[in-house]
């Protein structure tokens, strides 16, 4: 498995989740465990660029795949535009859901670019605020930083569009 670009060789039992393999075996603790049931999104990581809930993935199923966690978003010291935007728009409070929100947002923008619809998609294909909210609804934030998160994503989407 490649994790954030580095090859990680890992011998885990088949009942170990991808999330626990990352957090407990590899010490990659950016992905968070909020529910372990696919109900909060805190564990969201990218598998070959696709967002998934690492808590419901068995590590063995991801043998040979490229996993990106929040630790892999920045380029060295330079934050990913979404990371910087989250700070600027205060799209976080306690920070626990933040890594999942960020990974989710990265993939969400890619999904939208690729033309994937959502439950509220209108024909225009514009990334409206309603679109962002629906597409990000798999990531709970109990602190209620939703407005800041949406503002951060809109900001970055607008930068990309320019």
């Amino acid at each position: 498995m490649r994790v954030n670009g580095a090859v990680e060789s890992l011998d885990v039992q088949p009942w170990v989740s991808l999330l626990d393999a990352l957090r407990d075996r590899l010490g990659v603790t950016g992905p968070k465990k909020g529910c372990d049931q696919g109900a909060c999104g805190a564990c969201t990581v990218l598998a070959d660029g696709v967002r998934i809930n690492a808590c419901l993935a068995l590590a063995v199923q991801y043998d040979g795949r490229e996993i990106t966690t929040v630790e892999g978003l920045a380029s060295g010291e330079e934050l990913h535009p979404l990371q910087a935007a989250f700070i600027r728009h205060d799209g976080l409070q306690c920070g626990y859901c933040t890594p999942g929100q960020l990974c989710s947002a990265v993939a969400m923008l890619a999904e939208h670019r690729a033309g994937m619809p959502s439950a509220v998609t209108e024909r225009s294909g514009e990334l409206t605020e309603a679109e962002i909210r629906e597409r990000m609804s798999g990531n709970l934030c109990r602190c209620g930083a939703y407005n800041g998160i949406v503002d951060a994503i809109r900001d970055v989407a607008a930068q990309e569009a320019r």
Partner: peptide, 21 residues
Amino acid sequence: VDRVDGRAKTTGEARYAAEHR
């Protein structure tokens, strides 16, 4: 003012209780 721990929280650097080994 931006949060002083914004960077730690957005990069996964911030360690929460269960993440100490």
